[in-house]
Design a binder for these strands. Structure first.
Lengths: 343, 343
DNA sequence: CTGTTAGCGCATTCAC
DNA sequence: GTGAATGCGCTAACAG
């Protein structure tokens, strides 16, 4: 019986409704309440009492205490997320996708913002202490992340990151496919004289996109100029100008990202070269505040789908399925706009 | 004693370390472990035993189970967040700020993505079932949000949203101050012939920025053209062109946001009007992929500070402090770049 | 068909 | 100084 008042502890300011309150109101036992509310009552509890329980629960506004249930089940239905993506302008879509997919299975996201490997370890520790059922690590922008001590205590996934040792399960955008698709956009429009402005080699994405690009070129038996450029509008402006003023101007340029593409388009405008009339341009990222504005054909980053896939994998692993090491590639959507013209 | 094996329940796949394990390893009682690890041991537990406990805890990798603690304390140290901001490109900073400030006080964010009033109520219910200590509602982009039934069960704050009934505590950007500052940027540079391109009146921000603008103009005893424009680059392009081709061209234009400003600058370029030489332009939002690129002077959105303030207020409320109804205005940072020139 | 019991892991009395 | 007992709210097993 819990009729005795709390012993010596500070009295709760405003006690919440518990299953005991519902049981008393419905004139049944707590087990009956649990049975009814969890759908295990049929053939066990009389229809009459079932109704009484439901009515009482509703009237009282009873909400089963998930903390108590978690303690008992040794399962919190909580997914821990360590991320840096909320800071940046993009990538929030991963959180959105993850949240939504998780909610569909009655799971919630416990989010920690962290930057730097040291803090990551602490963050994971904090999440583990909260008894999260699984872990998602999303440091942002396809970086490398080497799992440490704490990672591995529960099922865990790397999101938009790769494990250099190849032991972890990673969900990443298909950069090779994206690079291939970007180039294919130009190839399929009949272009053969193509230049590629790549990002910085330090970034994982750069090499992969380049590989996809080369694959596409090899499919048509062609070759093209590859220029290490950078990620910013200035870089695109500089290299774009050089390309357009040079001896043999390409008819199409594949850019490292949309900012670079914007720079190229600006250079073209200055040089009096019409896009897409005389020059076709392809970007990457589908940057929300650039690509649509510039009517730029580009390759999107499937952030939301990545978040969804990560949660799906994680939930399966929590359910006991084995987590395969390696990378799960999420296809990058091709966004066709008006900056490419057939020739 | 818990020496008897679990009764009939599915055995935990990999039992975690509990305080009992630590106690046994250190040769003391569980209470001793609790006392030591919570800093209540001095003068109660021998230094020798204290050391033994700490050593054992470290060696075993003991992490106190926060779920159990939450159940006992009736306090989860969890802050529920209902938001839509992760979807959009901006506003993620609010989550970042909130996460960081919360973490400083050993609190974590439980995030639910929701759009639409109906789902909000459900989301809050789910969060309440998780026994969150407080609630933050951040529907995004300064909209109106009327608290429903569930809101109010625990301390709650509206973030980047206002309560039309004025009952809730809201944390919002100081839009009046921002509008004032934007105009002041031009006024202080000596401009008197100023045009204002406002956003759509349906948005709360529009009216407030306008009020700030008018306040600034009244300070110098001036008046100016106010033109309802919109939020996009096209709108800026259209209205900018009209203004520049018109009879008396202004020397400065305050824009609804950075996208509109970009449109205006584009119109200026087309009309052969030099910015800032012949025309000064001010934007709003400090849009990360526009403002810096265009060297645009603008007013920032203090997203991160807002998230921080919301958590601070919430934690204070959870600690027992009264939550004052009304709006807490977070100052909007003035970002001076090169698009304004003195005349 | 119902009510009682036990225990999830923790912190806190209160006897020893 | 320490250890046994208690209860947070819940559910599953078991005895009535």
């Amino acid at each position: 019986m819990r009729t005795t008042p709390g012993t010596g502890r500070a009295a709760p300011t405003n006690r919440r409704i518990t299953s005991y309150d519902v049981a008393r109101a419905a004139g049944v036992s707590r087990s009956a309440v649990s049975l009814v509310l969890n759908g295990r009552a049929d053939g066990v509890i009389s229809a009459e009492n079932q109704h009484a329980v439901r009515a009482a629960a509703k009237r009282l506004g009873y909400r089963p205490n998930r903390v108590a249930r978690s303690l008992r089940d040794r399962r919190t239905h909580l997914l821990g997320v360590v991320t840096d993506v909320t800071s940046g302008p993009y990538g929030g879509g991963m959180i959105t996708g993850a949240t939504i997919r998780a909610a569909e299975s009655d799971h919630l996201l416990l989010v920690m913002d962290a930057r730097g490997r040291q803090q990551d370890e602490e963050a994971i520790g904090a999440l583990l202490a909260r008894q999260v059922d699984g872990l998602i690590i999303a440091p942002g922008s396809l970086c490398e992340w080497r799992p440490g001590e704490a990672f591995g205590q529960v099922p865990g996934i790397l999101l938009d990151a790769t494990d250099p040792d190849g032991r972890a399960t990673c969900v990443v955008s298909d950069e090779v496919g994206g690079g291939h698709a970007a180039t294919r956009l130009l190839l399929d429009a009949g272009h053969r004289d193509i230049a590629l402005l790549t990002g910085l080699p330090a970034q994982v994405a750069t090499g992969r996109r380049l590989a996809g690009h080369e694959l596409a070129m090899s499919e048509v038996g062609g070759a093209c100029r590859v220029i290490t450029c950078g990620w910013d509008i200035d870089d695109g402006l500089r290299e774009g100008a050089r390309l357009l003023d040079g001896p043999d101007r390409p008819t199409g340029i594949v850019c490292a990202n949309d900012r670079v593409a914007a720079g190229v388009m600006l250079a073209a405008a200055r040089a009096g070269v019409d896009v897409p009339g005389e020059l076709s341009v392809v970007g990457y990222d589908d940057d929300p505040s650039i690509a649509a504005q510039l009517d730029l054909s580009t390759i999107g980053l499937p952030h939301r789908a990545m978040g969804e896939r990560a949660v799906e994998l994680l939930l399966a692993a929590i359910a006991g399925q084995r987590l395969e090491p390696g990378e799960l590639l999420v296809p990058a959507p091709v966004v066709e706009r008006g900056s490419v013209r057939a020739r």
